[in-house]
């Protein structure tokens, strides 16, 4: 390995770990590759790379392969890996960091619906203080024209008949304060 690529190696791992407030004490380099995370992960079979492989790849600086994989969008945030890791590494937080990293750098694949869904969810919260979740999903499904989601839509209709589907998200009362509060966290241009 050349010296230049060693610097790059160091950078991707550091970059990812610095994306987490909760990452203090999330020592990616301490991974011993025991595979407990992959063995515990209920989604591993569907991932391009298992959690154990992803952490090895992050540590090795294989940035492109990591970002091109579906692994971090397939993580269900179930924390099974995290509570079992003998090295106290939170793989779940690593998956979150990779999601964020790929959104910020616009490095996610077009067919990954995850990011659009997350963004839409965030926008609804900003506007009203509340959301539709988790039945928010079908409206994004329409957007992506996925035929297989017909069953889900049928379910949504049935829920509506049972009086369980909200048509508009309710708003919080002190919405103006709420928006000003968010502006102190994220400076945004334009009207509050």
């Amino acid at each position: 390995m050349t010296e230049a690529s060693e610097t790059y190696t160091f950078t991707f791992m550091k970059e990812v770990s610095s994306l987490l407030h909760a990452a203090d004490g999330n020592p990616f380099p301490m991974c011993v590759q025991c595979g407990t995370c992959s063995g515990s992960c209920p989604v591993a079979a569907y991932m391009d790379y298992t959690p154990r492989q992803i952490i090895a790849m992050v540590n090795a600086g294989l940035k492109d392969q990591v970002l091109d994989s579906n692994t971090f969008w397939y993580c269900a945030s179930c924390y099974q890996c995290t509570v079992r890791c003998p090295q106290n590494i939170s793989i779940t937080e690593l998956m979150y960091a990779l999601q964020r990293y790929s959104i910020w750098k616009s490095r996610y694949k077009e067919d990954m619906i995850g990011p659009s869904f997350s963004e839409a969810f965030a926008k609804t919260i900003m506007r009203t203080g509340r959301t539709f979740e988790p039945i928010l999903a079908p409206s994004y499904i329409f957007k992506f024209k996925l035929r297989e989601f017909f069953m889900e839509i049928q379910n949504a209709t049935e829920l509506m008949l049972k009086g369980r589907l909200p048509l508009l998200p309710p708003r919080i009362k002190r919405l103006d304060n709420f928006k000003r509060m968010i502006r102190r966290i994220i400076p945004m241009g334009g009207e509050a």
Partner: peptide, 19 residues
């Protein structure tokens, strides 16, 4: 007057705002 907490979805985008 509680607000939505962002579920698990929001942490993808911005941890600070989620907190």
């Amino acid at each position: 007057d509680w607000n939505c907490c962002g579920s698990t979805t929001y942490f993808h985008i911005d941890e600070l705002l989620a907190y």
